[in-house]
Design a protein around this nucleic acid. Sequence first.
DNA 1: CTGTTAGCGCATTCAC
DNA 2: GTGAATGCGCTAACAG
Lengths: 340, 340
Amino acid sequence: MAIRLTDVANEAGVSLATASRVLNGSARKPAAEISDRVRAAAEKLGYFPNAQAQALARASTKLVGLVVRDIADPYFSTIARGVQRGLGDSGTQLLLASTDSEPEREIEAVRSFMSQRTDAIILSGSRGLSEDAALLRLIGSYQENGGQVIVIGQPLASTGGIQIDNETTSENLAEELIRSGHRRFVVLAGDENLLTSRDRAQGFLRKLKRTGLSAVGVVHGAFSREGAYMAMSDFLRGRKSEEDAQQLCVFCVSDVMALGAIRAIRESGLRVPEDIAVVGFDDIPTLEDVTPGISTARLPLEEIGRWAGEMVLSHGEARKTVVAGTPVLRESTKLHAGNR
Amino acid sequence: MAIRLTDVANEAGVSLATASRVLNGSARKPAAEISDRVRAAAEKLGYFPNAQAQALARASTKLVGLVVRDIADPYFSTIARGVQRGLGDSGTQLLLASTDSEPEREIEAVRSFMSQRTDAIILSGSRGLSEDAALLRLIGSYQENGGQVIVIGQPLASTGGIQIDNETTSENLAEELIRSGHRRFVVLAGDENLLTSRDRAQGFLRKLKRTGLSAVGVVHGAFSREGAYMAMSDFLRGRKSEEDAQQLCVFCVSDVMALGAIRAIRESGLRVPEDIAVVGFDDIPTLEDVTPGISTARLPLEEIGRWAGEMVLSHGEARKTVVAGTPVLRESTKLHAGNR
DNA sequence: CTGTTAGCGCATTCAC
DNA sequence: GTGAATGCGCTAACAG
């Protein structure tokens, strides 16, 4: 087996307690000469503290759990990077779980993190409308036992976190688009059971209504690239050949969905933005490499993750922060003269 | 504090041992009636096994560590997803560490994983040329203590893993490009100290030489999007206005670099592929959304990750698998008639 | 089949 | 300032 602290103590000719005091900042400071001997012994033997044993003896694990829907999705991987940056060199390790959008897997993940006695759990996958009772109960008991819960996205009554003001952001985005001249909108609203999805669609639609406009169409589907691809394909198939109408602008409730929609538009032989304009939401890094540049609402994804990580470290008492996105209009929503 | 197994045992009126046997698959099967009572008590009290204590008492942690350079890089996040899929519902949790390409951070990550007593460590960040002695020593002692090490990319003598045959793949890619009519190549070779980088560049250059061609230029830089952007910008600034020459084809040793190169090319007012053709390597998912479609060498990224995860589960005795990429020519290397 | 007991490796009180 | 003893929560012999 591996080298134990006891071995190091023996090698250095000191007691277990002293070795322990030397190898981790304890209040009591052993003599310099003794310390050196212990450190030398540890080095020589190749000692590694057993984190499990430490966790058991102390009360903390220096572990934090991050729950995402899909780590390969740029939205989540960017946040994940931020979290790691936020954790910095605090020695805190990140436990990652992906849910594939399945609520039961999210519960499973939280349950597992609870077993691991993580000091904190960061929930970044958007929650559903129905405040899943089982999840809430779990979270509650986790908090009662001293666990910190940080939610990214929609706030959860009892927890701290970074709230994203999806509704207002969508309203502002709609406003900018209208100002730029767009009038005919279609909303790819994603999954109506997800808060994020719903809030973004509602905010957008509300602004339209207030401006005296109404959406040409609202299409639901999965909150993913594939979901948007299918939704858009269906929509295109369904509409009459009204090519002479004013340019359409498709608002997708996420950039990833915008990417799927564009794919569908192109496959049906149309161009973006000449035939149909497209807007997304999030401003994922991927957009930097896509042409035409896709209009969107910029969210400081990496920073959001970093804040979450920092919150964990600061043991902040359920601090809440609200972030709104900034509309960024690029080529994908450029009005095409011939289509006005 | 949290509910302990002892509490459950008391509540159920059985011994600690029995409760333990019920709540986790032990060889000995307690009576059905007793089992139900224990499970009911556990449920009622909201019991969660303390993974740390279990790990200490057993010998295994059901934890595996994954080291990547940057989790926000599609290459790594896709592999990470694969690893999670490979781990499936085995109950094994993933510990994630990012190194930001700094060797010392990689060592730090491995050291931390060793402290966590992870059952296995998956190294996916490409290693440097100099077989970092410190890292090798660490890995060695980890293995001696029963730890499993799986390397993705270049093989490491003592470990199992998925090897990527970068050289042969690059040769095949070069062959396809030549066959399609290209003759004038520039190689954005990335970091010459990284094995991946070097192998890909060398394989490509070797094929050129064997075909009687030689590269118009070989430019080094960071193995990243930014690195390629800068390298390409420099190259473009440096060359004479030889617009009338035959079309250039820029081979980037990774897709992410290709993306950076394309950005540089466009900023200098040139078009891809009309003025300059570009090829990448990896076939990251991002390419699906980029126009023009970028030619590349396809690697089954997610599957590679999945294999790694499965290797961990199967406790495979240092099994090695070799994977080669498949050349995929798309629009970014289409020969432009006017430039022939 | 069930209960008792002895550690797993370490932090930490308490004496010296 | 240093050492001996106790316990963190759980598993795995070992008895019964």
